[in-house]
Design a protein around this nucleic acid. Sequence first.
DNA 1: CTGAAAGCGCTTACAG
DNA 2: CTGAAAGCGCTTACAG
Lengths: 338, 338
Amino acid sequence: MRRAARRPTMREVAAVAGVSLSTVSRVVNGVEVQPELARRVHDAVELLGYRRDLTASTLRRADRVSATIGLLIEDVANPFFSALQRSVEDVAVSRSVLTVAGSSDEDPARERQLAEELLARGVDGLIVAPTGGDQSYLARDRQAGVALVFVDRPPNFLDADIVVSDNAGGAYAATAHLIEHGHRRIAFLGDRPEIHTAVERLRGYREALADHAVAEDPGLVRQGLIAPDQARSAVLDLLRARNPPTALFTSQNLITMGAVGVLHELGLQQRIALVGFDDIALADVVDPPLTVVAQDAAGLGRAAAEMLFARLDGDDGPSRRLELATTLIERGSGEVPA
Amino acid sequence: MRRAARRPTMREVAAVAGVSLSTVSRVVNGVEVQPELARRVHDAVELLGYRRDLTASTLRRADRVSATIGLLIEDVANPFFSALQRSVEDVAVSRSVLTVAGSSDEDPARERQLAEELLARGVDGLIVAPTGGDQSYLARDRQAGVALVFVDRPPNFLDADIVVSDNAGGAYAATAHLIEHGHRRIAFLGDRPEIHTAVERLRGYREALADHAVAEDPGLVRQGLIAPDQARSAVLDLLRARNPPTALFTSQNLITMGAVGVLHELGLQQRIALVGFDDIALADVVDPPLTVVAQDAAGLGRAAAEMLFARLDGDDGPSRRLELATTLIERGSGEVPA
DNA sequence: CTGAAAGCGCTTACAG
DNA sequence: CTGAAAGCGCTTACAG
């Protein structure tokens, strides 16, 4: 691209205003100077359309603050994560901080590469929903002063602040709810077992079964469902088996969507109960309306961002862990009797 | 935050490797040097855990490339925009470019402030879904070499590359579809008239009415629906009027969600036809399944990103405009007879 | 209070 | 091919 005109520099502003570079820097940074000098600087800034180069500023300042943070999530297009991203952005923007988001797609190598790219650009902090890999590669940057908060899942081999949902508790509530409606054959459909939330939700499911004296049938537990297609196949497979489940606990939003689709295609939506983990748009107008365990995606993002900024503001206490409650929302699909 | 250890610099790598700063820079940038020197540099990099400071690199290089682009959209949490963001990110990441996204919330002042923040951080280019405001403030940066592509909507008072959906055509198809199913009283529910897509969709609606000799009833046109609540009130208001509509054209995804909710609460979902603009998750399991005009959110993002990188790669031809087709997906709600 | 000078971590002509 | 030096656009001690 042809660069028809460079952007004006502080030095040029100084020349136009007839003051020194230092004075322009002071005015631009809000340091008090003689009113007359300030006026000349402001006029020159206006005239030239000057905007400070923040990257040069960051490079030179003592605190090295870039006013940019990074956010690493599984997928910015997943409604759970996009709600989380938005709330992080809101907290950040209120401090004139920008947010760079990246999608790891649950690939530890991609997570690390994105983290390196962000760190190479000098982000002040990182909010990470970690993959199942090893996050100890971040230890060095943490030592160097990069603020670090993990959200949705705890990191592996690294001690840092954490904000998560009560995944086991939510899964327990979902499963117990189905048991209370007479179900004994409840299928568990889950994400890959490398993901902490998937493990926790399976644990909650198992604890609910055990507490209610329902024997677990390993054939009803399907894990590693990533793509919607896999969730669909798993449901089809379960329902075609000799002794099919009477209820499904779909432990993640995309899995819920896939499962509901299959139930509809088979015309079984009124006969097989379903409780999903994570609330979904339109859940209340689906036939039947979807009962879900809702987690507070925006709350997770907000809390994580606030923790991050607390660290950047100087809080150097021991690592904290915050767990947000989940809420069972009864709408119909979870109250289908056995 | 206490900074226990600085990050190692290129100068320190040079000292450890026993070579000059220039040589380290060459090795780090992949320029050929003596194998023995390269080995020593690599060893030192490994030993110190060195990572190049990209912001310093950008400041000094002749081309000033930061390998970062900005994306300004209405709301990263809106599924349409989050799908668009993801596809932009995918194109960018394939070039090791990071994407900084910001939500304008349709506020021209916020759009401009976010743009200034991005520009101050030296982004190479900007993909913008512009608000109804004036985008000429970007002209100076465009002159200075910042690549610029507008997506979803054209800018005001600025000539630049544009990627949009065929909004009028999609709205025409939706309206004509309802007319073909016997409807004459079709309500239009739209976003604020400052938004170009809202205007275009209203135009398509009107053209379809005119072409089919259906007189427009101004009382059936509701605009300025931003929050889901407003969409709900508008639908309630329309349906309680003396001469209510028999069909709704909800011309945006959030409006569709609000309207479907109201129809369900009133138990009218099988009696009032509905076609929405924009496809929605779970649309096929809603009662009745939602007929929509789908636009290709991922395609918009991909095309915009590819245009942006073409400009960054040196394309300096005249501005281009790309319009992507929409698709009517018949699922049930749009085929409810009058 | 203001300005001249040094320097943040790099890249890049320029000599050797 | 390698290194010493200049300099990107700023901030910040340091003199005056």
